[in-house]
């Protein structure tokens, strides 16, 4: 019969429409603006409305999610910051778009290079968010951020992230990537234990 195919198609859209209301009634108030509601809308059995109402609701980001890089520093007990970066330059060497500039600090007296960056700059108008810097950093010093709310009115200077802006505490890193943080801490503890054991043997 002519027109049957179209009717069948319209049936599918109608089902989608009805689903929305059925789901709303079934789930009640918990469907919107709650974490469970958002998670439910992300599963493979989701039906009806699929929308995440950003900014009131937010899509939970996967741990591996990467946006622009940032530098990690460890907080000392009295609040002093120890930057993990040793200015080894690996991140700037692997960077495919060459958007990382590192100026290695020098000892003011002997002018020998120090293992810390005097300046660290990332031009995020060049950065392609590939994550190579974080992947190959041997000191877990540079990581990919989860913060994507970076829209600005002017870019020329703002979008060059310098050291001060890039530095974020290890606690922040732990909050966005708990699993990798725990793994790294564990590995570090093991290394430290091994060192201590070796010292004990001597």
């Amino acid at each position: 019969m002519k027109g049957f195919g179209i009717l069948k198609g319209l049936g599918v859209t109608l089902k989608h429409l009805v689903d929305t209301y059925v789901e709303d009634i079934k789930a009640g108030r918990d469907r919107y603006y709650t974490e469970d509601g958002v998670r439910q809308r992300m599963t493979s059995d989701t039906k009806g409305i699929f929308t995440i109402n950003y900014p009131e609701e937010r899509l939970p980001l996967a741990e591996a999610f990467r946006y622009v890089p940032f530098l990690v520093y460890d907080e000392g007990e009295d609040g002093e910051r120890s930057i993990r970066c040793t200015a080894c330059g690996i991140c700037s060497k692997v960077c495919p778009s060459q958007c990382i500039w590192i100026e290695r600090a020098e000892d003011p007296e002997t002018s020998k290079p120090l293992k810390t960056p005097a300046e660290f700059a990332i031009d995020i108008d060049l950065c392609m968010n590939c994550g190579f810097c974080a992947e190959y950093c041997p000191f877990d010093a540079i990581k990919m951020d989860h913060d994507f709310e970076l829209a600005v009115y002017d870019r020329i200077d703002v979008n060059i992230h310098r050291k001060e802006r890039l530095l974020k505490p290890a606690s922040y890193y732990a909050s966005i990537r708990p699993e990798s943080y725990a793994l790294e801490q564990k590995a570090k503890a093991e290394v430290a234990a091994r060192k201590a054991a070796r010292r004990g043997n001597r």
Binding site: A87, Q98, W101, R104, A121, R162
Partner: peptide
């Protein structure tokens, strides 16, 4: 070829 020489260890950011 990449990596460019001026990125490290004396990387002065410039456009």
């Amino acid at each position: 070829v990449k990596p460019y020489e001026d990125r490290w260890p004396e990387g002065k950011v410039s456009k």
